[in-house]
């Protein structure tokens, strides 16, 4: 017999939180987005600035990893050339699911100012993109905002069922 009456469905002063499995898994996923170091051009400088102490990505749980096998998030930061296109596809395939892609800056979104023979006109021709981030180059605040928007998107996903395969072909 409990000495005190405890209503377990409410926050009765006890450190108990009731939630669904989806929410717990998505909370974990969205708050430990490990991003791949993938700076291709000048956007990479802004991405590095976001990771460094002034803007501090670590407080979002976003830690840059040097290996696709350890990453959940690929931030395509910069111009993707046609020579490099096959490697971005290979790196994307090497990432474990679930995985997300942020296309950072005009060049990755649409080819941007490089309307030339050697530039891929949008990284979504090669890999599926979850979030397009405009700017040339986007400021670190913008990239932080994009990561937070992606976290919101992840929280709305169903965690239980297998992720729909996101493939172009």
């Amino acid at each position: 017999m409990a000495q005190h009456q405890v209503n377990y469905t409410q926050d009765g002063g006890l450190p108990v939180a009731l939630t669904s499995v989806d929410k717990v898994i998505n909370w974990g996923r969205s708050n430990s987005l490990w991003a791949m170091t993938y700076g291709l051009a000048c956007c990479g400088i802004e991405m590095m600035a976001s990771g460094a102490s002034r803007y501090d990505f670590d407080r979002f749980g976003t830690i840059f990893r040097a290996s696709p096998r350890q990453s959940d998030l690929m931030i395509v930061a910069g111009t993707l050339t046609k020579k490099h296109a096959e490697f971005i596809k290979r790196l994307y395939d090497q990432m474990a699911e679930p995985r997300w892609v942020i296309s950072m800056g005009s060049c990755a979104n649409t080819g941007g100012m490089f309307n030339t023979y050697a530039t891929v006109q949008g990284v979504d021709r090669i890999i599926p993109v979850d979030l397009y981030l405009p700017g040339c180059a986007p400021r670190p605040e913008t990239l932080q905002y994009a990561v937070m928007m992606l976290q919101k998107k992840i929280r709305a996903e169903k965690a239980g069922r297998a992720q729909r395969p996101k493939r172009l072909v």
Binding site: K82, E86, T116, Y117, V120, R125
Partner: peptide, 14 residues
């Protein structure tokens, strides 16, 4: 802006 082969290069390749 590239010729025919260039415009399809990355698609054909991958």
């Amino acid at each position: 802006q590239g010729d025919e082969a260039a415009s399809w290069y990355e698609v054909d390749r991958i």
